[in-house]
Amino acid sequence: MAATGTYTETFVELIRRASAELPAEVAEALRTGREAEQRGGLASIALNTILENVDLAREASAPICQDTGTPVVWVHHPTGVSTRAVKADFEAAVREATARTYLRPNAVNTLTGANTGDGSGRGIPFMHFEEWDEPRIEVRMILKGGGSENVGAQYKLPDGKLGAGRDLDGVRRAVLDAVVQAQGKGCAPGVLGVCIGGDRVSAFEASKRQLLRPLADTNPMPELAALEERILREGNELGIGPMGFGGSTTLLGVKIGVLDRLPACYFVTISYMCWAARKAGVSIGEGGELTWLS
């Protein structure tokens, strides 16, 4: 189905915001991290550069990071909205945002190695649609970079080497191991989106959806809230630090969700989001009025 164009310009602006404007809460967490690092050390220099970069990107409406990632998008819509039309409009917006250099041409034909040139490709952008009872459309997106995507991981418990059984302490062990494996390669300090349970498909989607949560929120499930807090604390004790230079700021947040599972399977799925934890959202009312979401 061809793009109707109804939402294209709104989505271009959504992408621009995601690419150029780091959420205030993430910048705040980076500043807090900087306070904890030794002044003049490599970790502190790195965080200074990062924070300067965040300001420059916002002022120039230019990408925070040249790897503008995969746009991963969640759409909630009322009955009667054509999801094909919304998808076509979003794809058109990706091509337009790429032409305006809000995005890098970031889609490569896997078989030929040729860049598609316009940012869109098979499976890119990646979109999820859910119908809901509200009359408005809500679109939330992240830009998920490739360096951090490469350090994502999926563990299946039990894991003898980690002493990880099928319980929340096993989850803790798997997640901390993933942080050590990642070192600075995912552009630490990172935010972890974690899914316990599910299958190999549903769990990665659910782990990424966790990245939409505000950094400062509290998990409504008390046992997961406690686990998030513990992994955040222990992850920062690992000493990996910004960029893997060593230091006390390794993680900015840990967000954990849960799906039910098959009797045979117990997956722990980790999506590592780099410090440039880019997300944006917009609500489109019945009459087309826009509310930008943080």
Binding site: T49, E52, A57, A60, I64, G147, C187, M243, A276
Partner: peptide, 13 residues
């Protein structure tokens, strides 16, 4: 030589 990952604006300048 390690450049700061993600610092695309500082480095482009």
């Amino acid at each position: 030589l390690h450049a700061v990952g993600g610092a695309a604006q500082v480095l482009a300048r």
